[in-house]
């Protein structure tokens, strides 16, 4: 539970720290373990009763371990009149669990919520953060199948949210693109990184919005790496820190103008594209 202590220390003193802390703990462990809440109580000086009250107030927080994939079926008014209860029943029949439960193989957790805010698109099912709209019972097997395959895998050919960017070093302006290494059908971005005792190359997918990487050394989850330009060996380090986790942001110049920044923490998905910006 040392990770919990780190999470707490990172946010201590912030406004509304408790919810941020609980969210991060849940992101790490998939639920809020009792020991973690005790650590939070100890370090923040809040009573366990208050923390437990917050943890049970919000439906997003879970006190039971969740499965690998989270399916949330909206039962809000708009979804309800469009047949959401049938969708929820069908999901629970096909998964063999009731709402709020996890399948025995640990794959799926089924939950219901009272409104997910997409009322015009109902009935809505959210799988691992991906919204499926106008869901019919006949679409459920496909949703389950796709969720199992992994919805975060981006299909570069069909997904319009992804587009390739060409970047160069903010210091020497040498292109960081490596035509010799392909990731997802595009030339990859090659940088050098170091963390702990390791030092080696890292390939990043050049598709904006994709998180595919290849690295010489396996980077542990949550590790913050230092990024270097492979040409001028300058450290790629921006003035700002990641808004989500506080790690340094890594800036790279986009060809055609602008700056793209990615978070240096493994597993953190913060990134930022500013087509008018420059490296400060």
């Amino acid at each position: 539970m040392s990770g919990v202590g780190q999470i707490v220390d990172r946010h201590l003193g912030e406004r509304g720290e408790l919810i941020t802390i609980l969210e991060e703990i849940q992101a790490k462990y998939s639920y809020l373990p009792e020991e973690a809440l005790r650590v939070v109580s100890e370090r923040t000086g809040r009573s366990l009763t208050d923390i437990y009250g917050v943890a049970t107030f919000y439906k997003w927080f879970s006190l039971k371990p969740r499965g690998r994939h989270l399916l949330t079926c909206c039962l809000g008014t708009a979804c309800h009149v469009r047949g959401a209860p049938r969708i929820a029943d069908e999901l629970s029949r096909q998964l063999g669990v009731r709402a709020g439960e996890t399948t025995p193989d640990g794959e799926f957790t089924l939950e219901t919520q009272n409104c997910l805010g997409g009322c015009a698109l109902g009935p809505i099912v959210v799988a691992d953060g991906h919204y499926f709209s106008n869901v019919a019972t006949s679409a459920i097997p496909r949703i389950l199948e796709r969720t199992k395959e992994g919805l975060d895998r981006v299909d570069a050919r069909t997904d319009e949210r992804v587009f390739p960017v060409e970047v160069s070093c903010a210091r020497c302006n040498h292109s960081l693109m490596d035509p010799g290494s392909q990731l997802e059908g595009q030339p990859a971005i090659r940088v050098t990184i170091s963390f702990g005792q390791h030092h080696g190359w890292l390939l990043l997918s050049s598709l904006y919005g994709s998180y595919t990487i290849e690295a010489q050394h396996e980077i542990p989850f949550d590790e913050v790496a230092n990024f270097f330009c492979p040409h001028c060996h300058a450290e790629l380090r921006g003035a700002s820190d990641c808004a989500m986790c506080g790690a340094p942001m890594v800036p790279m110049i986009v060809r055609g103008g602008g700056v793209v920044q990615i978070c240096a923490r493994r597993g953190c998905r913060a990134h930022m594209l500013d087509l008018n910006g420059s490296v400060s």
């Binding site: 009763t49 009250g53 107030f57 439906k59």
Partner: peptide, 15 residues
């Protein structure tokens, strides 16, 4: 303290 929300709100000790 209070736990839960809405009709599931109740009073109890943590866990």
């Amino acid at each position: 303290g209070f736990q839960g929300r809405g009709e599931h709100r109740r009073i109890g000790t943590p866990f």
